[in-house]
């Protein structure tokens, strides 16, 4: 029955001989392709949403910043006019930028405070769990509610803070916290710190609890004092957590819209204006979406630079995934 020529049989035979590994490779490739397709299918909805709601608006925002546009007028190319106006003529932009940077600079205060609290509740302190819960409680509150509460606390005539300060004899005249150019921004920042410190504390507490205890034991055996253990073990091991807090602090400073809006509306006379409130006012208050877009581009650029610097400050590899 074997009618095939020998060479063909030989070819066929040799083909048969190598066929299993080739098929295995194909099967493996197909499996990898199928897996890749599956992964892509799972990722696609998220990527599409990310593209549609993040990348596309961001791109359109950049284009808009180089145009004259309003909802009722066709777009015209503006070149760098919006940016020139921002940098050369808009005093409020510079004020808002300065205030935003001050807001960011206040983040380390909140982080240090949170670190102190985290260290305290991580110790053998009696009732630490209760303190932890109480301190965290401020974070889930709506910023609008926080703003309203603090606005009343700061009230010049009937506010609790002035009542206490006057009652204890620390001041004679009430302080117009939110009506004063000097006090308004620090007052808003304090309210912000109060709200966010609980969240930082939880992040840092998680970091503290993930530090292997044997490092401290070894240091103790070597006679390292508490300060050295803190500086040589705790702080370096907390770097990723500190980075997260720093990034959240930066983001929070750029997006503290609701708190400022409720407490001061950016006033008095822009004393508490942040970039984000200025963007809102330009866009929705004065219907200047083109100019607001240019402001947004500057804010975004600043945000990227600061996040990059924060990453560098903690060693440049924050957020990286270590493979085993």
């Amino acid at each position: 029955m074997n009618t095939a020529p020998p060479q063909r049989a030989g070819v066929a035979g040799s083909a048969d001989a190598v066929a299993p590994p080739v098929r295995a490779a194909d099967w493996y490739r197909r499996k990898r392709t199928r897996e890749a397709m599956l992964v892509a299918c799972f990722l696609l909805p998220s990527l599409m949403i990310f593209f549609l709601y993040r990348i596309l608006p961001l791109g359109w925002n950049v284009i808009l910043s180089f145009e004259y546009w309003s909802p009722l007028k066709a777009a015209r190319f503006a070149g760098l006019d919006n940016y020139a106006e921002m940098f050369l003529e808009d005093d409020v932009f510079w004020q808002a930028l300065t205030n935003t940077l001050i807001f960011i600079l206040a983040s380390p205060i909140a982080i240090l405070l949170a670190l102190a609290v985290a260290l305290a509740v991580n110790s053998d302190l009696k009732g630490a769990a209760i303190y932890r819960t109480i301190i965290f409680l401020s974070y889930p509150l709506m910023s609008v509610a926080v703003g309203i509460v603090w606005r009343w606390l700061y009230d010049e005539r009937g506010g609790f803070i002035n009542f206490v300060l006057r009652g204890t004899g620390l001041i004679k005249e009430p302080i117009p916290f939110l009506q004063s150019f000097g006090w308004a921004l620090p007052s808003v920042i304090l309210a912000d710190i109060w709200q966010v410190v609980g969240f930082y504390m939880i992040i840092l507490l998680t970091g503290l609890q993930s530090i292997p205890q044997h490092l401290y034991e070894a240091a103790r055996i070597d006679g390292a004092p508490a300060s050295a253990r803190f500086l040589r073990i705790t702080l370096p091991m907390l770097r990723p957590s500190l980075f997260i807090c720093a990034v959240i602090g930066i983001l929070n400073s750029f997006t503290a819209f609701d708190l400022v809006y409720v407490m001061t509306g950016g006033g008095p006379a822009h004393a508490t204006e942040l970039l984000v409130t200025h963007i809102y006012n330009m866009g929705f208050g004065e219907t200047r979406f083109d100019y607001a877009a240019a402001l947004t581009v500057v804010q975004f650029t600043l945000l990227v630079i600061l996040t990059f610097l924060a990453n560098r400050a903690v060693g440049g590899n924050a957020g990286s995934v270590e493979s085993a």
């Binding site: 409020v92 150019f181 008095p268 006379a269 208050g285 004065e286 219907t287």
Partner: peptide, 18 residues
């Protein structure tokens, strides 16, 4: 709104003693 915002900011500066 833009005109009012400009004047109002300076008015606040005056009224609140800045």
């Amino acid at each position: 709104s833009a005109v009012k915002n400009i004047v109002w900011a300076e008015m606040q500066n005056i009224f609140l003693g800045r």
